[in-house]
Simulated assay, not measured.
Amino acid sequence: MDIPEELKYTREHLWVRREGRTAVVGITDFAQDALGAVASVELPDEGDEVEQEDSMGSVEARKTVAELYAPFSGTVTEVNHELLDNPSLINDDPYDAGWLAEISVDDPDELKSLMSADDYLEYIEDRDV
């Protein structure tokens, strides 16, 4: 299982990569493995305002439909349109080609609630998924 050190993580199994005033968000390797083959993705629209911990889309896999909860508040500046035609990118490359959305960071303090790679590893080891 891949948990890149440079990323931050949520309890809902999303990763966050800060890039200046925006951050890229995706699904962790752990989550894509637990979900199984991703069949479809519902993403927010570019320009949508998202609030921390509110639903911003979903991922449908063979095993379940999982809500995607915004890791912080902001405006969606870009979405990965390739996922709409090829959702398996999430399974194949969750940290690069399988990214979900880029969101402006409205309140950098909200990022303080995210976990480090070590904290995320401990979190998933303690879970019975």
Rank of each mutant, 00 (worst) to 15 (best):
M1D: 15
P4W: 05
P4L: 09
E5G: 12
E6H: 04
L7H: 02
K8L: 02
R11Y: 08
E12R: 12
H13Y: 01
V16T: 00
G20N: 09
G20Q: 12
V25F: 01
V25S: 00
V25H: 01
G26Q: 05
G26W: 03
D29F: 06
D29C: 10
F30E: 15
F30Y: 12
A31E: 06
D33H: 01
D33P: 05
G36Q: 07
V38H: 02
V41E: 04
E42P: 15
L43A: 11
P44Y: 10
G47E: 13
G47S: 10
E49P: 04
E51T: 08
E51V: 06
Q52E: 11
E53V: 15
E53I: 14
G57K: 02
V59L: 08
E60P: 05
T64V: 10
V65E: 02
E67A: 06
A70F: 00
S73V: 14
V76W: 06
T77L: 08
T77K: 15
T77D: 04
E78F: 11
E78N: 14
E78R: 14
V79D: 08
N80A: 12
H81M: 10
H81R: 13
E82N: 13
D85V: 08
D85W: 12
N86Q: 10
S88D: 06
S88E: 05
L89S: 00
L89G: 09
I90A: 08
I90P: 09
I90N: 03
D92I: 12
D92P: 06
Y95E: 11
G98W: 03
G98V: 14
W99K: 13
W99P: 00
W99F: 05
L100K: 11
E102N: 12
I103D: 02
S104D: 04
S104L: 05
V105R: 03
V105E: 06
V105Y: 14
D106G: 02
D107H: 11
D109A: 06
D109T: 07
D109Y: 11
E110G: 01
L111H: 02
K112E: 02
K112R: 03
S113K: 03
S113P: 00
L114G: 00
M115W: 01
A117P: 01
L121Y: 11
L121I: 10
E122D: 13
E122S: 13
E125R: 12
D126M: 10
D126N: 13
D128Q: 08
